[in-house]
Amino acid sequence: MPKVFVFGTLKEGFPNFKTNKGIRYRGDFATKARYPLYLVGERCSPWLVLQEGEGHPVKGQVFDVTDDVLAEMDTLERITAVDGYRKVSLPVVCLESGDEITVLAYGKPPEMLQDVQVMQELAGEYCLEHAALYRSRSAI
């Protein structure tokens, strides 16, 4: 089963968790490398920008997912759209045990930042206070 690292609205208790029908993998995780994490646009969408070495380690959760659940996540993240997220493999570290695993994650290439409004830069963690600002695509 694929393992998916979620850092934003797909986390347990967050706005798009209903799409995440995976089984939570033990512990909390952070990306091994640093990445910028932003709230973007009027929807305040969380973007992990694929600029390795910039920003902070990004905290999140890891889920074991079936191929069907992964396909649902891919649809939500619009991976085939020009302005959608890109699905990448990257290493994350368990904050409790220090174990490192390679997972799938959704991020945005840095060039996508050129035509968007960054509302806030986050220090490596998307929290419930940020989720309160989020507006789903269907709500606009």
Rank of each mutant, 00 (worst) to 15 (best):
R137I: 02
A131L: 03
G84M: 02
C94D: 15
P46V: 01
D115Q: 06
F63Y: 15
E72V: 00
K21R: 14
E121L: 03
F29M: 08
G84D: 06
Y85V: 00
T102Q: 13
L133A: 06
P57L: 01
P110E: 01
D28R: 15
E111H: 15
R26I: 04
F17L: 01
I101V: 07
L113C: 07
G107F: 02
Y134T: 11
E111I: 07
E129N: 06
V4D: 14
S136T: 08
G53V: 01
E42H: 12
T19F: 15
T80E: 09
F63D: 04
L95P: 13
T31Y: 13
G22T: 01
E129Y: 04
S136K: 14
S136W: 00
A105Q: 03
C94Q: 11
R78W: 04
G27Y: 12
A81T: 03
A105W: 03
C127P: 03
D99L: 07
V58W: 07
F7D: 12
P109M: 02
Y126Q: 09
K108L: 10
I23R: 13
M112R: 14
L39M: 09
D28M: 14
D64T: 06
V49I: 04
V69T: 11
V62A: 05
E121V: 04
E100I: 14
Q117A: 11
E96A: 03
C94L: 08
Y134I: 06
V118W: 08
H56R: 05
T75E: 15
K59I: 00
F17G: 07
P36T: 00
D67W: 03
S138W: 05
G27L: 08
A105K: 03
L128E: 11
S138R: 08
G13P: 02
Q117N: 08
V58Y: 06
P46M: 04
G107M: 06
Y134N: 12
D67Y: 06
R78T: 02
L95K: 15
E42L: 10
Q61E: 10
V82Q: 11
F17Q: 11
K59T: 02
E12N: 14
P36R: 03
Q114N: 10
P110K: 03
C44Y: 13
G8M: 06
C44I: 00
K108P: 13
T31R: 12
A33T: 02
L95S: 10
Y134P: 15
Y85M: 00
S97C: 03
A81R: 10
V88E: 11
Y85W: 00
G13F: 11
S89D: 15
K11P: 03
A33K: 15
K32V: 11
E77G: 12
V40H: 07
T31D: 07
